[in-house]
Amino acid sequence: MLEGKVKWFNSEKGFGFIEVEGQDDVFVHFSAIQGEGFKTLEEGQAVSAEIVEGNRGPQAANVTKEA
């Protein structure tokens, strides 16, 4: 698991990027966000996630919002 913060997230398109210190930004799709209801993230929000290899490079999986 790694910790980072949301760089930006487009709720209409359902994707965005997470900033991780010392690494390239990581793509995040709404389907990777854990929880019930409408899955979205806010800019600057702290999150933790796993990194997996997607079709277009590294992407976030099992994204959870930090308190």
Rank of each mutant, 00 (worst) to 15 (best):
S48A: 10
P58W: 11
E19V: 11
L41W: 03
E66L: 15
T64H: 13
A67S: 12
E42L: 13
V52P: 02
G35T: 09
E50P: 03
N10G: 02
S31Q: 07
N62D: 05
K5W: 11
Q59R: 09
G22R: 03
H29A: 01
D24L: 12
T40C: 12
F9R: 00
E12S: 14
G44S: 06
E53Y: 15
A32R: 00
G22T: 03
N10I: 06
G14V: 00
V63Q: 01
K65P: 11
E43V: 15
F9Y: 08
P58C: 09
V63W: 00
L41I: 04
F27H: 02
E3P: 13
F30I: 07
R56H: 10
G35D: 08
T40P: 02
S31M: 08
L41C: 06
T40M: 08
I33T: 03
A67T: 13
E3N: 15
L41N: 02
S31V: 05
G35S: 09
I33G: 03
Q34Y: 09
A67I: 12
E12Y: 12
P58Q: 09
L2W: 11
F27I: 02
F17K: 03
M1H: 12
Q45R: 06
F30N: 02
A32M: 07
G37P: 05
Q23E: 09
P58I: 10
E12V: 13
E66D: 12
F17D: 00
G14C: 07
E3L: 14
D24W: 10
V28C: 06
Q59L: 07
Q34S: 11
N62V: 10
Q59N: 04
E42H: 14
I51L: 10
V28F: 11
V63K: 00
F17I: 08
S48L: 15
G16L: 03
K5D: 05
A60R: 01
L2N: 07
Q45L: 07
V63P: 03
M1R: 15
A60S: 03
F15V: 06
A49S: 07
S11N: 10
V20L: 10
A49V: 15
V52S: 08
E43P: 15
L41M: 05
I18A: 01
Q34T: 11
S48F: 14
G57M: 06
Q45N: 07
D24T: 10
E53G: 09
V6Y: 03
A67N: 13
L41P: 02
E50Y: 14
W8I: 00
E19M: 13
R56P: 07
F15Q: 01
E42Q: 14
E66I: 15
L2G: 06
G22P: 03
M1S: 10
V20S: 07
V52H: 08
V26S: 00
F27L: 03
G4Q: 00
G44Y: 04
G22Q: 04
N10S: 11
G57R: 08
G44E: 03
Q45H: 06
N55A: 14
A60M: 04
G44P: 01
E53Q: 15
V26W: 03
E50V: 14
N55Y: 14
F17W: 08
A60C: 07
R56L: 09
Q59I: 10
S31E: 06
V47I: 09
N55M: 13
N62A: 09
A49H: 09
V28D: 02
A60H: 02
E42C: 15
F38D: 07
K7V: 07
F30Y: 12
Q45M: 11
K39R: 12
E50I: 15
I51S: 03
E50G: 08
G54M: 08
E36R: 09
T40G: 06
D25W: 09
D25F: 07
G16Y: 04
I18W: 03
K39D: 03
W8G: 02
K65S: 09
T64R: 15
G37V: 05
Q23L: 13
G14S: 01
V6H: 04
Q34D: 08
T64V: 15
L2M: 11
F38K: 06
A67P: 13
A61M: 11
M1K: 15
V28L: 06
G14T: 03
V20M: 10
G57C: 07
G4V: 04
D25I: 08
A67K: 12
H29Q: 03
A60F: 02
S31K: 07
P58T: 09
G4A: 05
E66V: 15
G54A: 06
G35L: 06
F27Y: 07
K5V: 13
G4T: 00
V52Y: 10
E43C: 13
T64K: 14
E53C: 15
A49I: 15
T64P: 03
R56I: 08
F17A: 01
A49D: 02
E19T: 13
G37D: 05
N10D: 11
G57D: 02
F15K: 00
K13L: 11
V63L: 07
E12P: 04
G37N: 05
T40K: 07
G22M: 06
N62Y: 11
G35N: 07
E19R: 12
E66K: 15
A67E: 12
N10Y: 06
R56Q: 09
G16K: 00
G57P: 04
K13R: 11
I18R: 00
H29G: 03
T64Q: 13
E53D: 10
V28N: 01
F15D: 02
A32D: 10
Q59K: 08
G37T: 06
E43I: 15
E36K: 11
K13G: 05
D24E: 11
G22I: 03
D24M: 12
L2Y: 12
N62K: 12
G57F: 05
K5C: 11
M1A: 10
V28A: 02
G4S: 02
A61G: 09
I51P: 00
E3R: 15
Q23P: 03
G37S: 06
A67V: 12
